[in-house]
Structure formats: structure tokens, C-alpha cells
Amino acid sequence: MSKTPALDLLLHELALATPGGYAVGLHIRYVSPLIMVNTYPEEWQEIYTAKVYGLRDPTLAWGLSHTGTRRWSQIGLPDPFGILKEAGEYGMHYGMICSIGPLSSRTIAGAARGDREYTEEEMEYVHRIVQRMHDLSVPPTRLSKAQIEALRCIADGDRHAAAAAKLGISESAFKARLTSARQKLMARTTAEAVQRAREYGLI
């Protein structure tokens, strides 16, 4: 999941509130989210990716141009590719979109169900969960000197042993710095941490 216990608890709450699954992208910057979690049916995820629906999805377009919540049936945008109708073939007959934050770091969540429309109360509940997730996962504005040095070594192509020697520390201490940098950046891998640190102008 996210490697952040508090965030994982919120994802669990979101799962309970969205019987047809959800997709949430936290702090979308330069088209890429800081964290992406998708629990929609796997077949639908494969089709959505293969057909590049992310560039054509009217619910995503609504989320990029508005904040707040809206039912899929009420977004008022054209769906020339029939994405919402096709989603219904995988049990997602009804849904909602939730959009939070500035366009420079927006969080967008979609949620589905197969039996009926989401009520206003249910949408507000989902919005509160997603808002808490958005607030909890705000990207850092700075890293420690040690974290920056470690990430720069990796960015320069140094292996762990060579980087540790360059910094005058043990290899285990160097790995600890990388671990703390990954945690600060909510990255799953060191490569991802380097990429995010660059995107945020931290290294």
C-alpha cells in the first residue's frame, strides 16, 4: 500500500465506503501522482490502461477542472468514447468523483458501486476521507543534508559502497539515509525517491 500506517487506515476506510472500488491519485504533479491506489476490477484496469482512457475520461477531466464532489451521472461533460457505459459492463454502474487541492498538486478520487447512486451524505463522507489523505500526504518542502547527499550520490550513479566511502560513513549508515529519504518522500524505491526529489526541486 502506501507504507504509511495512518494513510493505510484511511485507504481501508475508503474501501469500506466504496463497494464498487475506487481509484485515488494523491498530489498529482506533472501528470504523475505522488501515490496511486486503484481497487477497481482488474479487467477494467487493464482495459482502461490499454485504451489510454486516462486522457479521455470525462470524470478525470471534471476532477482536473473542478474541486468538490459530483456523481458520474451529473458531471455534464461529453463521453464520446463511452467510457462510463463500458465501466458499467464491469459492475460499475454508478459512481462519483472527488477533487481536492490546487491544480499544481491536486488529489482526485473516483469511486464506484453497482446498485445505486451515491447519496449526498456518502459523497461528503468520501470527501472527508480523501481530504484527510490529501493533507496527510503533502509532499515535503525540504530534506535533511544527509538525505540530500545520499540521494545525490545515487542520482550520480554511485553504488552503495562507493557512495558511503565518498561521504565517509559506513554502508549501513548510507542505507539508513536512503531509507529515511524514501520515507520522507513516500517512495517505494530509491529510484522513485530520486525522481520525486528532483521533481520537487529538493536535490
Rank of each mutant, 00 (worst) to 15 (best):
P102E: 09
I129M: 01
R106V: 11
Y94F: 15
R106D: 10
C98S: 12
R113Y: 06
M96H: 06
M123W: 08
E120L: 11
Y125C: 08
E120I: 10
L103Q: 15
M123F: 06
V130Y: 02
E121Q: 13
E124S: 10
E120S: 14
T107W: 00
T119I: 04
R128E: 13
T107H: 01
M123G: 13
I100W: 04
Y125T: 12
R106Y: 13
A109Y: 00
D115E: 10
A111M: 12
S99F: 01
S99R: 10
Q131D: 13
Y118F: 15
I97G: 13
I129F: 02
V126G: 02
D115W: 01
H127V: 09
D115C: 03
E117M: 08
E117T: 09
S105W: 04
I97D: 02
P102T: 06
Y94W: 14
Y118I: 00
Q131R: 15
I100H: 02
R132T: 06
Y118D: 03
E122I: 00
Y94A: 13
E121F: 06
C98Q: 03
Y125S: 12
R116A: 12
G101F: 01
H127Y: 14
E124W: 06
E124R: 11
I129W: 00
E121G: 05
G114S: 11
Q131W: 08
M123V: 04
E120C: 07
D115S: 09
A111E: 13
R116I: 01
A111N: 10
Q131P: 05
S104L: 12
P102C: 05
E120M: 08
M96Q: 13
A112E: 00
T107G: 03
E122R: 07
G114W: 01
M123N: 09
C98M: 09
I100L: 05
Q131Y: 11
C98E: 05
V130D: 07
D115A: 05
T107A: 05
E121K: 14
I129Y: 00
E121Y: 10
V130P: 02
A111D: 13
A109N: 02
M123K: 09
G110A: 10
I97C: 10
E117P: 00
G110P: 03
S104G: 09
V126K: 02
E122V: 03
R128N: 12
M96D: 03
V126Y: 02
G114R: 00
R113E: 07
H127M: 14
R128C: 04
I97P: 01
T107S: 04
T119Y: 07
E124V: 06
E122K: 09
Y118V: 00
C98N: 09
L103C: 14
T107N: 01
G95M: 08
E122H: 09
I97H: 07
I108A: 04
A109S: 10
I100Y: 01
